[in-house]
Amino acid sequence: MFRIRFHGRGGQGMKTASRILGTAFFKTGYEVQDAPRYGAERRGAPIFAYVRADKSAINERGIISHPDLVVIADDTLVGMPAAGVTQGIDAHTLLLINSHDSASTWQQRLNTEANVLTLSAGEDVADRATLPFISSRCAAAAAALTGVITREIFIEALCEELDHLRQDIIDQNRDIALSEFDDMTVNAGLAKQGGLATASDYVKPDWIALPFESAQISNLAIHAGVTSVKVRTGLWRTMRPVINYPNCSGCAWICSTYCPDGAIKVRTDGYPEIDYEHCKGCLVCVAQCPPHAIESIPEHIARDQEVGETT
């Protein structure tokens, strides 16, 4: 059985990628199971999707804990424990990362025996996470890596899954996916089908009896104010709103009122300040500011600038 996981951020189309690959397997004659896990259900938040494909009926269910292939559409997710990108990865696993850094860099960084490849396209895109048609590219690369899906069947699957889009957009997706498929064909078969633990050879679960604990310990005493502060939703941001203070009229309420996350406060001097730990980058403030004093810049550029300022 093939077990494949796609990791990305909400909005990058990892569900679509899993469906294109799922349909391609199905058209090739495989039994298929594909599913997304929506996570926080927000644009920019980590999500993943998975595909199982086998020649006989699939009885396994749920999250793939031991993947054969892991496709990572946004390399900044790797360092985020909640994204679970590296879960269950070992020497059997093939990692495909959309990154400017080399495969060997990733191998060292992750200290893994897993085989690592990077997505071939996109050298000319500064922020790899904004690579256009990323879901089609990831699906194409994964399909080629399995070595069992033909070019023709892959395109048929892609067109079927993108059927609701405009024809010119489907055509663009098809062309880009095809070039990714062709580039990845040299690695065809690198994603290998793995097995499961068997009843004659398995590690016993380390079960414990849950001890009784009084309500002082076991009630749900987790309080909102502080937990919302602890969860750094600013990590979900792909675009950053930046206030251009000379243009700010100091209206003292519009951006801070419209911010759906309460991430803009008004200082005592009457000017707003954005809390980047929690701003999700929805850019409602950019749209609402009457004198257009808030601009949006790609997060990776803003981060690079910050690094430059501190060194």
């Binding site: 633990a197 009843a199 590690v203 016993k204 679960p205 079960w207």
Partner: peptide
């Protein structure tokens, strides 16, 4: 939604 692993079925057996 807590998963039940194959190992757990074997241990139940």
């Amino acid at each position: 939604g807590r998963d039940i692993s194959q190992q757990e079925f074997f241990a139940i057996a």
